[in-house]
Design a protein around this nucleic acid. Sequence first.
DNA 1: AGTGCAAAAAGAATGTACGATCCAAGTCGT
DNA 2: ACGACTTGGATCGTACATTCTTTTTGCACT
Lengths: 236, 236
Amino acid sequence: MGEEAASEIQVLDGVEQAPSVYELIREDIISGRLNPNERLKVAELAERYETSTNPVREALQQLRGEGFVVMEPNRGARVMPIDESFVRDIIEIEVLVEPALTRWFVSIANAADIVELEAIQAQIEANNFEDRMKHGLLDTKFHQFIYDRHYNRHAAELWWKHREILRAISRRFPTSLSRRNSVLKEHRDLIEAIRAQDADRAAAVVAAHVQGSGRHIIEQMGVAQRNSGNWRSPRK
Amino acid sequence: MGEEAASEIQVLDGVEQAPSVYELIREDIISGRLNPNERLKVAELAERYETSTNPVREALQQLRGEGFVVMEPNRGARVMPIDESFVRDIIEIEVLVEPALTRWFVSIANAADIVELEAIQAQIEANNFEDRMKHGLLDTKFHQFIYDRHYNRHAAELWWKHREILRAISRRFPTSLSRRNSVLKEHRDLIEAIRAQDADRAAAVVAAHVQGSGRHIIEQMGVAQRNSGNWRSPRK
DNA sequence: AGTGCAAAAAGAATGTACGATCCAAGTCGT
DNA sequence: ACGACTTGGATCGTACATTCTTTTTGCACT
């Protein structure tokens, strides 16, 4: 399960050069082909991506700087292990940042922007979570549309980085029915608040949206843990 | 100007191993020995730190991941250039994050903590900005004391990273008299709010503190620019 | 002689290769 | 059990090939 999707980047316009090792490893982490806490041996990766050890080492260092990889001296690298508190930490930051970004959007959004948002939301509703990959793309597009033009590039990039980490995690779990409904409702509420130029309400909706998303992920993580680990028979 | 001060780290307790190239470069960036936007040539750095190119390349990649260095493909690396909007971006994020961290501190602080904070503040006031380096250390200690025990490590580290970047910048500029007074007053206000268990007021004070610090840095950057660049005689 | 442009050369980054060390873990013998 | 030995792998140094960018050079044309 999971050797497709290398194409996403590959096929763009033909003049594209081969993705760097950095991008490849990053994609493999985010898409789950490399699992959390998995050991990352330089030699293995070099072979896997058909390159030498040097680029791999450099890619790993960069990923360490970005927080996707942890390294212990002389013990090598592994994929950032993610636990519930890690998710909670990120979410807490996003609960602060995203409403602030949203407020700015409310203040600059024009009619065309709202039409665009509604179009994306229509696609999301049409898809109705059937194609998970597609839902992910559309949902990202929805929020990115709101944050992308913000003057604070630093904040927008922080959001993007966190989003990718969360995407890497939630990809592993299903989305509960109730969560699906909440997502749709919150998106609609958000569009409404924006249309009404109500920055406070938009910020509140986004805060709830993020909070809900975090809660959902953490719940799913708990479920998965109980289903896999030492659960069924504690005395085995 | 600038071949002293490599000792800061070197001399610690004798059992310390040599700092990594990564740490050395990072320190040189933060302390201003490497200037913003300065070109970072791998060969030069390798010689400077008496090592080979490989570790330098890796260090640069990691610093890129952390945002201290920017790299363009085939064009090499340079120290992250910092302009006013960059400072503003960081400050805007901190205005969101630091009050949140402070609230938590208010909820867990005990009498001993307040005594400790007051002790640090007393040292700050005793020093009264005379030894700039010392003030920097004490001020960092003051805020770190508040944030360090927060359960959200991710947020605390984000604060720390931003703090170091701001430190790298503000090190270049003097602190105006009015700013000095504000700093002292705000610190005292903060301690008071914490003692009174008034999270809202503590958060407000911190927000103002951060905002003021950012405004001050940006003003100083503007002053420095006008004093250096094409200012005195536009027709020279 | 001065100008513009393109080929050539120089400067660096990037990638490959390989050997030398060093460290942590596991293995084996006592 | 416990300590010496073995081993996998990370880390570092070095050298060299390749590729890209920038600068210089050389030459035709005005």
